[in-house]
């Protein structure tokens, strides 16, 4: 029983992490058809920010690092993506690849290609014992923070004036402008939210691995991208759902596979992803209204 609960906590924790990552990608795709592969470098920037800020009072350090990532995301929009905003999705995609490599190489120039270790998040490393169930504090904090962020984001998108404008822009950007939605502002908000998610997810990644390298964000963004596709490109609910599903499947294979096959866990996860896409090519929650534009 305790084992099952521990596994469940693991699965929810991994799933929450994936959901945060996927939301950051899905948000921008929804608004401006951009699959931002440089999202991984936002995670990396957050990671190095924690390295540089080491020694600061931990909560403040986390907040400052997240703020740095948000600013980096806004700069990405302003410098790299704004000039090509009217171009087609392919141009945006290639731009994001270029930006991703550029930032990785800048990181190599500044920090070198070897991982930098950091104690950020070590305060969360201890496990706690709740009625015989041993769970890590990191997992619990991650689940609580990710849950709160996801709920807040959903409420903003569903209920607020800003959220209505974002959904309108996601469905028909040109028409949204004709009805007064400020294009620069709504895209900047999208980048800022995406940066916030990357900042938080980046912190938890650093806390889990204890080190940062220039390619720190690459595998995370791949998972996020897969979750976004499986969820149905552009669907925020789909991204969250698929993020959690990927987390559960990953932990399930981790536990259920015979010991000799565990190193190939991700191959099994991706096989499930492939199967899902064969059965539901539009993703779990298809975005019918936008299909023609993609």
């Amino acid at each position: 029983m305790e084992d099952a609960i521990q596994l469940l906590v693991d699965a929810v924790s991994v799933g929450a992490q994936y959901a945060l990552l996927a939301l950051g990608i899905a948000l921008l795709f929804g608004i401006m058809n951009l699959i931002n592969f440089a999202y991984g470098e936002l995670l990396m920037i957050g990671g190095y920010a924690l390295v540089v800020l080491a020694g600061m009072w931990a909560p403040l350090m986390v907040l400052v690092s997240i703020a740095i990532v948000v600013v980096a995301a806004l700069l990405m929009d302003r410098i790299a993506f704004k000039p090509v905003r009217r171009a087609d999705a392919t141009t945006l995609l290639v731009t994001s690849f270029a930006l991703s490599y550029l930032l990785q190489n800048v990181a190599i120039m500044i920090f070198g290609s070897l991982p930098e270790t950091t104690g950020a998040g070590s305060g969360l490393a201890r496990s706690i014992d709740i009625a015989g169930v041993v769970v890590s504090r990191l997992d619990l904090v991650l689940i609580a923070v990710a849950g709160a962020l996801i709920v807040a984001l959903v409420l903003i998108v569903k209920r607020t004036a800003l959220g209505i404008q974002m959904r309108a822009a996601a469905e028909d950007f040109e028409m949204a402008r004709l009805i007064g939605v400020n294009a620069d502002r709504i895209i900047a908000v999208g980048f800022a939210m995406s940066g916030l998610l990357a900042g938080v997810a980046g912190y938890f990644l650093v806390a889990q691995t204890g080190s940062v390298s220039p390619t720190f964000g690459v595998s995370a963004v791949l998972i996020a991208f897969i979750a976004t596709i499986v969820g149905g490109l552009g669907s925020l609910r789909g991204a969250v759902l698929a993020g959690f599903a990927l987390g559960f499947i990953t932990i399930a294979f981790q536990e259920l596979l015979p010991a000799g096959l565990v190193p190939y866990r991700d191959a099994f996860v991706f096989a499930v992803v492939l199967l899902t896409l064969v059965l539901r090519p539009q993703g779990l929650i298809p975005q019918t209204a936008r299909a023609a534009r993609v």
């Binding site: 209505i164 959904r167 469905e171 028909d172 040109e174 028409m175």
Partner: peptide
């Protein structure tokens, strides 16, 4: 060009 996924009120 109404927003089809939004409600009429939205």
């Amino acid at each position: 060009h109404i927003f089809e996924t939004l409600s009429v009120a939205e």
